[in-house]
């Protein structure tokens, strides 16, 4: 596939990190509103139509809402990793298409020539960025690579006991900050 043609395959549908964070912030409010609606109906002795709640006790509903909150956090983290990957890969395609002369673009073209469509995020993209003389990027890429263990665990169905990149684990805000730092560092590149 030619480089121009590859540019035409981009969907322009990738989410921004800030949109994703707004989505993540809205979910607890929606969950709490649903919880309040449900418990008010239970207190009034009303019947509810939604089969997902059928025959559940208040304790089971509470446990179910706690699950919803946890699940929202985990899915938002996966979404943030995907958002960064999309942003980096779109930047990769644009750099090889427009044949810019900066160091990152030249290294991307070399990787593209060597591997064609098998571009690897860590080796072909992140390592190139990490080697650039941009303030804070080494640490930003390093933190992101560390968090990729969490990304893989989430994306592959969480079926193993994850040993994450740091002992304290990650919450959604940690992942947002790691992702945001990396994207800001890349955006600061003048090439």
């Amino acid at each position: 596939m030619s480089r121009r043609l590859r540019l035409s395959t981009l969907s322009n549908e990738e989410e921004s990190l800030s949109e994703l964070w707004e989505w993540r912030e809205l979910q607890p409010a929606l969950i709490n509103a649903e919880r309040a609606r449900l418990f008010a109906a239970l207190e009034r002795g009303e019947s509810l139509a939604e089969p997902r709640y059928f025959a559940k006790t208040k304790e089971e509903l509470d446990s179910n809402f706690a699950f919803q909150s946890t699940e929202t956090d985990l899915l938002s983290m996966l979404g943030m990793f995907a958002c960064v990957e999309a942003s980096l890969r779109v930047d990769f395609v644009k750099r090889i298409t427009y044949r810019r002369k900066d160091d990152v673009s030249r290294k991307f073209r070399a990787a593209d020539k060597a591997r064609a469509k098998q571009i690897r995020l860590e080796e072909d993209v992140l390592d190139v960025w990490q080697a650039q003389p941009i303030a804070g990027i080494y640490r930003a890429v390093s933190d992101f690579k560390g968090a990729l263990k969490l990304r893989h665990w989430l994306a592959q169905g969480r079926y193993w006991n994850a040993k994450l990149g740091r002992a304290s684990g990650y919450n959604a805000l940690d992942v947002f900050e790691i992702c945001n730092r990396l994207l800001c560092s890349v955006a600061a590149y003048a090439g």
């Binding site: 449900l38 109906a41 239970l42 019947s47 509810l48 709640y53 059928f54 025959a55 559940k56 006790t57 208040k58 509903l61």
Partner: peptide, 25 residues
């Protein structure tokens, strides 16, 4: 019996055995 204050019915009984669980309302 699990309780009378449940969603969508007037009470629930869980039936459990070695092979699994069923719910009657």
């Amino acid at each position: 019996p699990q309780g009378a204050n449940i969603v969508g019915a007037l009470g629930r009984i869980d039936v459990t055995g070695l092979g699994g669980l069923a719910t009657i309302v």
